[in-house]
């Protein structure tokens, strides 16, 4: 990436490698465009013992532009996570702030998982997945209505 903000990403990468938050570890971060982060279900949550993978893609506008964040592999079964890995979480789209970091985004997703009490897919999962196909979740118009989980 030729971003002028590459230094910020390099700092974040170093920080994630040397001082990762609990249940989060970076598995692929060799280039600055795309990272893969392993997320473990927290102890005591319904996802305990499960392992997930988050993919972050950064545009040259990061951090003014939000990263594209999706689950790859098998996504957790959660009312706000679609089976194609897209995550309905406002800070990834309309409520993005350049003060957020990869680490804080991971923690938000982890807390979204930890607060969940029932493993169910979003009610419109199949409709959504067939509609968006391979589009980036950043191109989708999201409606945020449920802040209980």
């Amino acid at each position: 990436m030729t971003s002028r903000y590459a230094k910020r990403l390099q700092k974040e990468l170093l920080d994630l490698k040397t001082n990762p938050p609990p249940c989060i570890s970076i598995t692929e971060g060799d280039n600055l465009d795309k990272w893969v982060i392993a997320v473990d279900g927290t102890e005591g949550s319904i996802y305990q013992g499960e392992h997930f993978k988050l993919q972050f893609k950064f545009s040259s506008g990061y951090p003014l532009d939000s990263p594209e964040v999706i689950f790859i592999g098998t996504p957790p079964i959660h009312p706000h996570i679609y089976s194609n890995g897209h995550i309905c979480l406002s800070i990834l789209y309309d409520n993005w702030s350049p003060a957020l970091t990869v680490s804080s985004v991971c923690l938000s997703i982890l807390s979204m998982l930890s607060g969940c009490t029932e493993k169910i897919r979003p009610t419109d999962d199949s409709k959504y997945v067939s509609r968006v196909l391979n589009k980036s979740p950043k191109e989708v118009r999201w409606m945020f209505h449920d802040d209980t989980v």
Binding site: Y5, K7, R8, E12, P63, L64, P98, A99
Partner: peptide, 14 residues
């Protein structure tokens, strides 16, 4: 700076 994470006593990325 909370945006570029560079020191205030340094300068922004531009």
């Amino acid at each position: 700076c909370g945006i570029c994470r560079m020191a205030f006593d340094g300068c922004c990325v531009d």
